[in-house]
Design a protein around this nucleic acid. Structure first.
Lengths: 137, 137
DNA sequence: TCATTTTACTTTATTTATGAAAGGAGTTAA
DNA sequence: TTAACTCCTTTCATAAATAAAGTAAAATGA
């Protein structure tokens, strides 16, 4: 299904998704139009789900990166899910997981005040364990 | 430092980083060159760290998404870090965290065999708790 | 206060990239 | 062998990016 060239294209687009088709073509030894057709195919079959940017969250004021293990108090997850949906500014990912906890919630906050406020709300619905990210190497 | 227009630009580029500067300009009520200059500034000051793609990992054979809590057996983290550096194919993020565990390791695997192999290696250096991601809503 | 500089933008013109169309080479299958 | 596909290249028209020049408003400073 995917050959070496496709994987190379994915790799290059991961590193720089705004690369020109001509330049990407040079990297994978194809012409611009051939490369463009390959990329369109990868979009069409859903392997490329979208084009996005990496934002330095600290530089835009989100200095706290938290990962929170969520334990349900109740079998009904809906109140928790509804709460999370309202916190789009803070929530990066809300993973349902197998293992010790029920969810792993990845969030960003601009201050301890906002984090505290969030946890106050959260604790109405679930129990949690908080981890704060120090680095990512 | 960042005004409303900058935040709008970041938002639009997050949704589609390959958008034309002219089209992005229309969304934020600027001309192409003005938009282009704003974006260049956001790149220059490091707020935009890079342009990338979202890849559907399942469609390229990575069906297992795991998050692993890491507990050090020893005060020396180096053997663990060295091991992780060798596992680039599988490791998405290796967060050093405060809280219960020392690290939160996010990984992807193409099969239970590869996951098992990885865990066998991992257990030489650290203790761990494994969570498998079911969904992300 | 008023002149000067800076910043942020628009407009225009040139360069560059994209995307459509035509065609060729290699592969597969009747 | 021939037809149908796939995947590519080349060519060319169109569209976008970029550089340069100019403008207007805001900030700076004597």
């Amino acid at each position: 299904m995917l050959d070496r060239t496709d994987l190379l294209i994915l790799d290059e687009l991961s590193k720089n998704s705004r690369i020109k088709m001509k330049e990407l073509g040079e990297k994978v030894h194809l012409t611009g139009p051939a490369t463009s057709a390959r990329v369109a195919k990868l979009e069409g079959n859903g392997i490329i789900q979208g084009y996005t940017i990496k934002i330095n969250q600290e530089k835009i004021g989100y200095t706290i990166h938290a990962i929170i293990q969520i334990y349900m108090k109740d079998t009904n997850h809906q109140p928790y899910q509804t709460f999370i949906k309202k916190q789009k500014d803070y929530v990066i990912n809300n993973y349902k997981v197998s293992g010790e906890s029920c969810y792993l919630l990845e969030c960003k906050f601009p201050s301890n005040e906002k984090l505290d406020e969030f946890l106050e709300g959260l604790s109405k619905y679930v129990s949690y364990k908080l981890s704060i990210v120090i680095n990512n190497k």
